[in-house]
Design a protein around this nucleic acid. Sequence first.
DNA 1: ATACATAGTATCAAAAAGTATACTAATGGA
DNA 2: TCCATTAGTATACTTTTTGATACTATGTAT
Lengths: 113, 113
Amino acid sequence: MTHDVYDCNAGCPVEATLALIGGKWKGVILYHLLSDTIRFNELRRLMPDVTQRMLTKQLRELEADGLILRKVYPEVPPRVEYSMADYGLTLAPIITALQKWGTEHLERVAEEA
Amino acid sequence: MTHDVYDCNAGCPVEATLALIGGKWKGVILYHLLSDTIRFNELRRLMPDVTQRMLTKQLRELEADGLILRKVYPEVPPRVEYSMADYGLTLAPIITALQKWGTEHLERVAEEA
DNA sequence: ATACATAGTATCAAAAAGTATACTAATGGA
DNA sequence: TCCATTAGTATACTTTTTGATACTATGTAT
């Protein structure tokens, strides 16, 4: 997590939100889960640069914050599916806006170079 | 900065945006600057828990990314005013959305306790 | 019989981030 | 005359975060 105490006054809700979605790779994870239910190793393939340890950690935090769901199937080899929780879905407009702004930003940066 | 390389594929623009606004306290800084031009020490008073070094660092990064403006007046004692750059203003809807979601989230968390 | 796949955990080391503290200049006020 | 103010910077230190690596279980495929 970027930070988890918010003892400032005004404007702090902004940080409260960022504390939930601003962790390393949480944005992409949420973005992917918005369109699908995804298994752990599928996520790894979608984000090859994220180490397993990190991915697990971020997923568990997102779950602990009630944003995503983790469903374990009692099978071997194990199957664990991640999906958006209802609460996480309330973030959809924000994730989408971040994606849109980011796309334009990356284009702008590319043009500058 | 939380992280500054985005070598994933889809969904990465989300991270690109978060890389700019997700740094420690950047959200609050932007939130405050959305409503006003603010001097350095005024910002410190608005965010007493942020160390001077950190505040300087975040402000410089925001400036380097073109989101805010830094205007130095050649006076003694020094006067430096921070304000939103045009490019930063394009983030206004996102900052506002983060603020709104965060407010509701904090209420929800408070109710749970 | 052996290897691979799944979804992790444990441990240690390394790197990054953040904190505390002291320092600067020139001016205005008590 | 002495102190406070401004907007920082420099240094050293501590804490947190991240990475790399090895390890687990068991069922299916070769």
